[in-house]
Design a binder for these strands. Structure first.
Length: 492
RNA sequence: GGGCCCUUCGUCUAUCGGUUAGGACAUCAGAUUUUCAAUCUGGGAAGACGGGUUCGACUCCCGUAGGGCCUACCA
């Protein structure tokens, strides 16, 4: 079927099997509407890697006009908590990756999982295994030293007849091989003898992960399974289950993981790991989307792009195969870009959130002053934290407690000059940065000195040692009354 | 131990056998300058290693080394 021309895309990676199989993209557009999903387990925070997996699933679904679903994998009753579920919901919401349907909760579907296993058991595709935990451990040990997969003696043995507890194991093929056709990794071949007969139902009757995933993905109509490449070998086991159930395989793509700047698995010690932490550090969701999209995926030389562009450009086959490291510098750069683009009112609200997180209780005046400053300083802020710090001087309450350095600069001559400056400034009718800068320059030349002569003390008087933008902007942002008031306070 | 995956500047990436190996972040130098930034200009910086195949290899094959994942009645 080489007559069917594959879509022309400049960045498509060349993998031989693609010329021999139907193109998943073109296939999906007609026969199967694309359904992707993100399936996190609620056992703590939402890892940034999970966020990126969600992003890729979302991008792909949007690109194809399909659906993006969420499934909460809460079958581990020990570790799953309601609070963690909320963390995931909040994380996706913050990132703007909204699922197209209410979430599916895996634990609630246990009866269905059991039913599927029973059907498989009835058809001979599974068997009861009566190995005790001790026997299993011993067999695992033997298998490991012999370099083979674990095997149960009960695969071909009659049931013992008593009421000993048992698990239900999958009866996998002993020979042949299983090929995972992966859109990122290519064709990955596993020898069936290396795949063990995994437990489908635990002795307490609850389903295991590999079984639940297959049944749920099938029932939810998931056509494309994109997840971390830590699941690549699970894909082989799961493929076997799909086949045994008589179900169509989804299209697989296993994404490389995100590591810390040092190449080790990303963890708390790298500064942040959970999406909530990135939010707290002052990153914008749209910046996270752009940055995360570029981690493991690229579109030529494009670095900064809109969601619409990402959606139209995204192709899972352009995802790279190797793991990526989180780079704070680049994240900062991307974030700075989106801060510049952001609406001042929204930024003011977000800065207020930063202050509240610090335990402060900002009022209307604080927001007003912050808002006035934001257009003047947002060009130089990389994060919302920096934006909060760059505007902090404006929120100070008169009279300011001046810093030692400023106080030492306020000698008689300087005070006299600042007094004359205040007079000069009073006559500025348009209190905005440009006229103010002109006034400052005029004053300097009139005094016969450089701006440097009184710039530093003026800065200190206005900002009390806090970071502040250039003097004209600082004055403009502060407003006439507050500016002149602060100068007057210092000269008193 | 076994199976599988990965390997281009410090980092993220481009490159579909023929390129001065491109871009971005970071870095360095210079410019600007009233602090800190931001901004502008310019520079340096890469195919892990070893064998093949080929007229020609970062690109294909094999091996080595180094990372990683799975090998659970966790997900």
């Amino acid at each position: 079927m080489l007559s069917r021309t594959p879509p022309k895309r400049p960045n498509a990676r060349r993998l031989p099997f693609r010329t021999l199989t139907l193109d998943p993209l073109s296939m999906s557009s007609s026969a199967r509407p694309v359904v992707t999903r993100i399936a996190p387990s609620p056992t703590g925070s939402m890892h940034i890697g999970t966020a990126r997996t969600a992003l890729f699933n979302w991008l792909y679904a949007r690109h194809c006009g399909g659906k993006f679903l969420l499934r909460i994998e809460d079958t581990d009753r020990e570790r799953s908590t309601e609070a963690s579920v909320q963390v995931i919901l909040d994380g996706l919401d913050w990132l703007g990756l909204h699922p197209d349907e209410p979430p599916t909760y895996q634990f609630a579907r246990a009866a269905r999982h059991r039913e599927a296993v029973e059907a498989l058991f009835a058809a001979g595709g599974a068997y009861r295994c009566y190995m005790t935990p001790e026997e299993t451990a011993a067999e695992r040990e033997r298998a490991r030293t012999e370099g083979r997969a674990i095997r149960s003696p009960w695969r071909d043995r009659e049931a013992p007849g008593d009421d000993r507890p048992f698990t239900i194991r999958f009866r996998g093929p002993l020979e042949g091989e299983t090929v995972v056709d992966d859109l990122v990794k290519g064709q990955v071949t596993f020898a069936n003898r290396d795949l063990d007969d995994l437990v489908l139902l635990r002795s307490d009757g609850t389903p295991t992960y590999n079984l639940a995933v297959v049944v749920d993905d099938h029932d939810m109509g998931v056509t494309h399974v994109f997840r971390g490449d830590d699941h690549l070998s699970n894909a082989a086991r799961q493929s076997l289950i799909y086949t045994a159930m008589g179900w169509d395989l989804p299209v697989f793509a296993h994404l490389p993981m995100i590591h810390g700047p040092d190449g080790a698995k990303l963890s708390k010690r790298h500064g942040a790991q959970a999406v909530g932490e990135f939010a707290d550090l002052g990153y914008l969701p749209e910046a996270m989307r752009n940055y995360l999209a570029r981690l493991g995926w690229g579109h030529g030389d494009d670095e900064l792009f809109t969601d619409a562009q990402a959606i139209s450009w995204f192709d899972i086959r352009d995802v790279v195969r190797s793991p990526a490291r989180l780079d704070w510098n680049k994240l900062n750069h991307v974030n700075a870009h989106y801060i510049r683009l952001a609406d001042a009112g929204r930024l003011a609200d977000l800065v207020m959130d930063v202050l509240r997180r610090r335990g402060e209780a900002p009022g209307k005046t604080d927001r007003d002053r912050t808002l006035a400053l934001i257009p003047l300083v947002k060009e130089s802020a990389k994060t919302l934290i920096e934006l909060a710090d760059l505007t902090a001087f404006a929120r100070l309450v008169r009279p300011l407690a001046l810093d030692a350095k400023t106080i030492s600069q306020l000698d008689g001559e300087t005070r006299a000059r600042l007094a004359r400056l205040a007079l000069a400034l009073e006559s500025v009718s348009d209190w905005t940065a440009e006229p103010l800068l002109a006034a400052l320059r005029d004053f300097a030349s009139g005094e016969g000195v450089g701006l440097g002569k009184f710039g530093a003390p003026l800065r200190g008087v206005l900002s009390a040692g806090y970071p502040a933008p250039d003097l004209a902007s600082a004055l403009a942002g502060l407003g006439r009354e507050e500016s002149l008031g602060r100068i007057a306070d210092a000269l008193r």
